[in-house]
Amino acid sequence: MGIFSFAKDIGDKIFNRDDEKHQANVETNASANTTPEASEPSAQSVANLLLKRIQQQNLDIKELKVKYNGSTDTAEISGKASTQADREKAIIAIGNVQHVAKVIDNIEIEHDAPESTMYTVKSGDTLSKISAEVYGSANEYMKIFEANKPMLSDPNKIYPGQVLRIPKP
Rank of each mutant, 00 (worst) to 15 (best):
M1W: 02
M1N: 11
F4Q: 03
F4H: 14
S5Q: 13
S5H: 08
A7C: 07
K8E: 15
D9H: 12
D12I: 06
F15I: 02
N16W: 03
R17S: 10
D19I: 10
K21N: 07
H22C: 08
H22F: 11
Q23F: 11
A32M: 12
A32P: 00
A38D: 11
S39E: 10
S39W: 00
S42V: 03
S42E: 08
Q44M: 04
S45V: 13
A47C: 09
A47R: 04
N48R: 11
L51Y: 11
L51F: 03
I54Q: 03
Q55K: 15
K62A: 14
E63A: 13
G70E: 10
D73H: 12
T74I: 14
I77Y: 01
G79F: 04
S82A: 10
T83F: 07
T83I: 10
Q84D: 02
R87Q: 07
E88R: 05
K89V: 02
A90K: 02
I91H: 04
I92N: 04
I94Y: 06
N96Q: 09
N96A: 11
V100M: 04
K102V: 01
D105G: 06
D105K: 06
D105A: 05
I107Q: 00
E108L: 07
I109C: 01
I109Y: 02
E110Y: 00
E115C: 05
S116P: 09
S116H: 10
T117I: 13
Y119F: 15
T120G: 00
V121D: 11
T126P: 05
L127T: 08
L127H: 06
L127Y: 07
S128P: 02
S128A: 12
S128F: 08
I130T: 05
S131D: 03
S131A: 15
E133Y: 07
V134D: 01
N139M: 04
F145W: 03
E146H: 10
A147C: 06
N148L: 08
L152C: 07
L152F: 07
S153K: 14
S153G: 15
N156H: 14
K157P: 01
V163N: 08
L164I: 03
I166T: 14
K168P: 01
K168D: 08
